[in-house]
Design a protein around this nucleic acid. Structure first.
Lengths: 117, 117
DNA sequence: TTTGTTTATCGCCAATAGACGATTAGATTA
DNA sequence: TAATCTAATCGTCTATTGGCGATAAACAAA
C-alpha cells in the first residue's frame, strides 16, 4: 500500500497491544478504551483533534503552520490518530484533507462516558 | 520520602512533558487532558481503575490476584496512576488501600466531556 | 518531460515505557 | 529481637515513542 493512499475508508479494529512474550489479555472494551486513550495521550494529538473539531476538516499543511513541530513529526502524529481510528484522510490532490472519523469518535466518546460513569 | 508514604493527600499538578530539547508548549487544558489520557493509555491501568470503581477501594494485593502480571509491575502501574492524580493510597498497615481520587477524577471527567462535546 | 507542491516514509537518536525477578523497607506480631 | 507480611524500589532488558532532517512519492501544471 502506498503512503499516498491514506486509508480513507478504513474501519476501526482492535489490535491488542504487545506487552510481553506471553500475550496478556484483557476485555475488549478495556483494550479499546486504552487504545483510544493512548492515542489521546500526547498534547500534540489533542491539539490536532481540537483543531479538527473547530475546523471540521483541514489539510496537513494547516496543522504544520499551527503547531510548533516539524512537518515529519506532524505526519507521524496524524498516522497514529489514523491508526487509532480517530481521524480519516480524504485525497484532495496534491493535498490531503483530514477529518474526525465520526463513527469511531462516537465509540470513543461512549467508552469514555461509560468509564467515568 | 519513603516508598511507604504514598502521598495520601497529594494534589494534582500539571508538569509539562519533556518532548524535545527546546520545550514545546501547549495550553494548560491540552496538557492536562493529554496527561490523563496517557495514564489511561494502558489496559492494565484501565482494568485497575475499573476495579477501583466497582470496589470503591482495594489493596494492592487484591489487584495482583486479579491481574495477570507480577506484583512489581502492578506497583509500577499504581505509581503512574498516582502520579497522574487519578488514585490515592491510604496506609492500613501493613497494607495500602487504594481509592479513586474523586477530586481529580471529576476534573478528568470534565476535561474528557468537554473534549468530546 | 520537467518542475513544483504536498505529504508520507526512512534513518537516526535519545528518552520513555513496560515487563520481570530480586531486594529493600515499613509495620505487625511472635 | 526475630520472623512475617506487604508493597515499593532497584537493576536489567527489550520495545516503543517522539523528535529531526533528508528523501521519496503522488499528482498537477507548465
Amino acid at each position: 500500500m502506498s503512503h499516498f493512499t491514506p486509508n480513507t475508508h478504513r474501519t476501526f479494529t482492535i489490535i491488542k497491544m504487545k506487552r510481553s512474550l506471553e500475550q496478556i489479555e484483557y476485555k475488549e472494551d478495556t483494550e479499546a478504551l486504552a487504545k483510544f486513550a493512548k492515542a489521546l495521550g500526547h498534547p500534540t494529538r489533542i491539539a490536532i483533534l481540537k483543531h479538527l473539531e473547530n475546523q471540521s476538516c483541514c489539510f496537513t499543511g494547516d496543522l504544520v503552520d499551527v503547531l510548533p513541530i516539524s512537518q515529519s513529526t506532524v505526519s507521524q502524529h496524524l498516522k497514529e490518530l489514523k491508526n487509532a481510528g480517530l481521524i480519516q484522510g480524504e485525497l484532495k490532490p496534491p493535498k490531503i484533507k483530514y477529518c474526525i472519523n465520526q463513527e469511531n469518535w462516537k465509540i470513543a466518546k461512549t467508552l469514555f462516558q461509560q468509564f467515568f460513569d
